[in-house]
Design a protein around this nucleic acid. Structure first.
Lengths: 158, 158
DNA sequence: ACTGAAACTTTCGCCGT
DNA sequence: ACGGCGAAAGTTTCAGT
């Protein structure tokens, strides 16, 4: 799945699709200088190759009553594979966790967590950290402004 | 645009579209117990109300030669509105920055940054931090594993 | 809210470069 | 092998019931 070689046309198409996956092929073609059919073919190929991993709707959190976002760092008691994997699984299963990264440095994991309010977040910390004997320490940062949120990959020039 | 009241059917539809925005209305309808037309109408309404903020393609970083992700915390010299807003703008304009949160706590900002390699990341730190007199301190964590990555909002029960 | 028809988008086959 | 063209298939949109 790595590096299915892409030319600058593929990158131009991906760039558009990262902004708006509903942009129709004809419109993309007009911008990149290709017929609609050619664009479709490339998109199909990109999907099958896994270059386009998924296509998703981004929901406005406020609209569904999610008001709070948190950035949480987690330090585990012991860095044993078993412990880490168990935590990974727990994180993946918990819908409040939007993102989780396993990182170098003093912390082991960095989490982005969504909750409707503080009460819910407290419930989250309880089930995720306090009930887990392997969590040595965690820190919480409350997000005051979601300055930039996306999953766009830089597709520089070519 | 906040809290356009949604019933459990809307939430069920959103839940599907967060996983796969290309799922056709008929298939969604079969799962939630609604005709295709009814699903279509609700989706249209959700888009117009901004509940569905955008629909995007998620590109696999490896496929386009992006191998490295970083979590960076940033502390500004002075927390003046002007300084913070300038940094916000800089962040929004920089394609290497995938996400940026303004947070409480010792750090001011948390960034998720994508680069093809360390050299590119060093260039990034230079233009974003060293060339900016207002940045007091920053810390870098290298992401070893992207355990969970998405923008999905929890749409629990109802 | 469902049905059917019209409009639109994507997909496929074929040919030319 | 890849792009363009035109026809077929699939999806969404809209009107009428």
């Amino acid at each position: 799945m790595p590096s299915a070689d892409l030319d600058h046309l593929d990158r131009a198409i991906l760039s558009r699709l990262q902004e708006d996956s509903r942009m129709i092929a004809e419109s993309i073609g007009a911008h990149v200088g290709l017929s609609a059919a050619a664009v479709q073919r490339r998109i199909k190929r990109l999907r099958e190759a896994g270059v386009i991993a998924r296509e998703v709707a981004v929901v406005d959190p406020k609209s569904v009553g999610i008001d709070m976002t948190f950035v949480v760092t987690v330090e585990m008691e012991r860095e044993r594979i078993e412990v880490l994997d168990a935590f990974r699984k727990q994180v993946q299963a918990d819908p409040a966790v939007q993102q989780c990264y396993y990182v170098t440095g003093s912390a082991d994991f960095v989490l982005v967590v969504n909750c409707s309010d503080m009460t819910e977040f407290e419930a989250f910390t309880r089930r995720m950290f306090f009930d887990n004997g392997e969590v040595r320490h965690f820190t919480t940062s409350v997000v005051m402004d979601r300055v930039k949120v996306g999953l766009s990959i830089p597709l520089n020039g070519r």
